[in-house]
Amino acid sequence: MKAIDRSVFYDSDTPLGDVVLSSRVRLARNITGYPFVNRAAPDQLTEVMHRVQSSQLGSVFEHGTRWVNLQSSDVSDRGMLFERNLISKPFSEGTHPRCVALSADGCASIMVNEEDHLRAQIYAGGFKLHALVGSMTQLDRSLERSLEFAFHPRFGYLTACPTNLGTGIRMSVMLHLPALRILDELEKMRRAAKELKLAVRGLHGEGSDAHAELFQISNQITLGRSEEDLLEEFAGVIVPRFVEYERQARQRMLETDALETTDRAHRALGVLRSARILTLEAAFKYLSRLRVGVALGIIDSVAMSTVNRLLLEVQPAHLARIRSIPASAADDDRAARATHVRATLDG
């Protein structure tokens, strides 16, 4: 799967890149004339797949599209796609007819027959929601030339779950919030998110844990506001506010105990550079500490993009791919993880 090994995933050179690890925009659509996925027969789902595969995907996919049929793909492909959040857990594990379109740069995917007929996602490293929403609009328009989407004059674009109705758009950012956790202020953050009608999830979306102090926040409201208003509110007001909470917490942490903060970052780099065994949990823990050290300028020998890259590559399917072994055989190779981390940091 060379097509998805691109550094665009690790880009940190964006205005809020010290806190925002990545941005994502997701669009839900259903094709008229078919039941939603949960009520459709296998032959109807196969027909939906064929219709999407023969439609024009437009400029987001202009450099080539790779279609992966999930019923016949191997487990490590699925693992890679899941670790990059290009497919969801239920989609990865389902048994019904389903496929995914991947753009050549690996930043866009269209899951066909997830909860809705189409779940398109565009993803980028750093904070790039405005550009992503623009690309998603183009993709939507392209798809609409060949597919007729279920639409209701009052409820907007119809989706299997009423929480996605209306625009069908969900924007999310992956935030790195180590200082809020260390200062025990995550609960405050969660309350603020709830008040602002945001969903807070872990690294891999719904139901997943917050590894490496990474939290995904997304808009929950999709009805009654235009795409532009949602973007303006989420990207223009909400994300900068959460970034500011974390930045202030980092500063407070530094002012309160500079020695401990500095020690934590250097100690993390020391472990990552020296360890011969690294569990996934430990790798996430020390990479998170290293990342905040890089963001605060405590560590200048490691690039932020390297840390972002390692946060992906220490995950099991990525690690197996790097070692050219099947994911099923690699289960959780702690020694290989440590070797890869050392080689990357020393390189």
Partner: peptide
């Protein structure tokens, strides 16, 4: 149900299919 899930909103505002 929709109004409760969508913070009181019940009417779509935004893009339409052509």
């Amino acid at each position: 149900v929709i109004q409760r899930a969508q913070d009181g909103a019940s009417i779509h505002v935004g893009r339409h299919p052509a």
